[in-house]
Design a binder for these strands. Sequence first.
DNA 1: TGAAATGTTGGGGCG
DNA 2: ACGCCCCAACATTTC
Length: 485
Amino acid sequence: MVRADWGVMKTAVVWFRRDLRLTDNPALAAAVAAAERIVPVYIHGPVSGGNWPMGSASRWWLHHSLEALDGSLRRLGSRLVTRRGAEFQSLVRLMIETGAGSVYWNRLYEPTAIARDTEIERVLRGEGLTVETFNSALLNEPWEIQREGGQPYRKFTPFWKAVRQRGLDRAPELPPKALPPVAETVAGVPLEELGLLPRIPWDAGFHEFWRAGEQAARQRLDEFVASALGRYPAQRDRPDLPATSRLSPHLHFGEIGPRQVVQAMRDDSAWIWKDGAEAYNRELGWREFAYHLLYHFPETTDEPLEPRFAGFPWAEGYQAHLAAWQQGRTGLPLVDAGMRELWHTGWMHNRVRMVVASFLTKNLLIPWQEGARWFWDILVDADLANNTLGWQWTAGCGADAAPYFRIFNPVLQGQRFDPEGAYVRRWVPELAGLPAAYIHKPWRAPSSVLEKAGVRLDNTYPRPIVDLKGSRERALAAFERIKKR
DNA sequence: TGAAATGTTGGGGCG
DNA sequence: ACGCCCCAACATTTC
């Protein structure tokens, strides 16, 4: 095969974005197959993302993930070039500098990213350059799954059925065995100068819970399959147990891809864990559904999909309640435990996410956008598609949403899913001395029990900021006003 | 991927 | 022995 025709080496830029891995990276694989020289680049653009610029926790993760990616590239003989500046200009400059005639990237699906990438692709192609884009993030492109007649799905169950009929098998790309070096003359900005790490070290605790990067992602997947997958269907709703995969931030940054995850489920020889694999694949299905919805209904990041919710009578003057929710001092132990887990680790168990979201939007009648905004900033797995779906689902205004009357009771949810109170004890230590019978409702505990546990209501721990029964009735009345006639 | 209110049933205490 | 009542326990309906 003659490739280095006329003695000119072909150079390709691989533009990394949220595909921070070498295995199962179709853009990288295609570039390696097509060119002799590879320039891997990450471009840190100016504040972008429209209404949704990357949050603090995401930036923390990104910093460490880029560090890991650079390490992986170096082990193969290459390195990551890090640039700062507007994406288009940075890309053009780099291509001119390196003599690259082509650029490869894996697609993003956020509305602002689609608009930007489409424009970059158009202009570069107009200049006669090669632009090739790929799917690394999803099992199917959002437009590949369609209803009869071409409309998008709005219900998960038929969507998932269509996905299953299409089949989940997508062979992951193998990683390159080696990569050509990047010339010394190609300069980059040191990672530290991107300013991704917070100035105030509120992230100090994150290191205890997370390790970013492709290797860590793979390890977590393997450990999950080996140790927890069998119990996943029965225990995944238990925040007090290590029953979930915690892959979400790795998936968000593309340190591992859904194809690899599905393959791990399939390859697992213990078929008695079939139910676990099925249940976990279904969760990947929700992720696919979220991207499907974001692609087809891009305005839902800010507006309810269900138009009648535009006139919903949300509470006014809710700042104090919002702050109590954010800081984990609502007086509802399960809610506070969740919000503090979020603050300390950048992550929250999914069952608890539903409970705190229901409490915010229904018991406090605070607009779901406020919750989405807070999660966006604090979650290490903050993902526009998933976050939007999750909040609209809880608020009852989204696709396949929870009916408006479905209001979680944080006490009952706590008793059901944290029966011994271990989760609350861990994150709300001032309640740790309470017996299980009162851990989820300290305000109902006899004074002798409180005293023995060292709990002084209103002092060491607040009473509930709203009455559960009354606020539930208020929410039902509010929803009644926008009910479909 | 609810909770509360309301309805039904059946065991057991008791006159 | 029988009927009455109470009330868990469970089922159904409603929000």
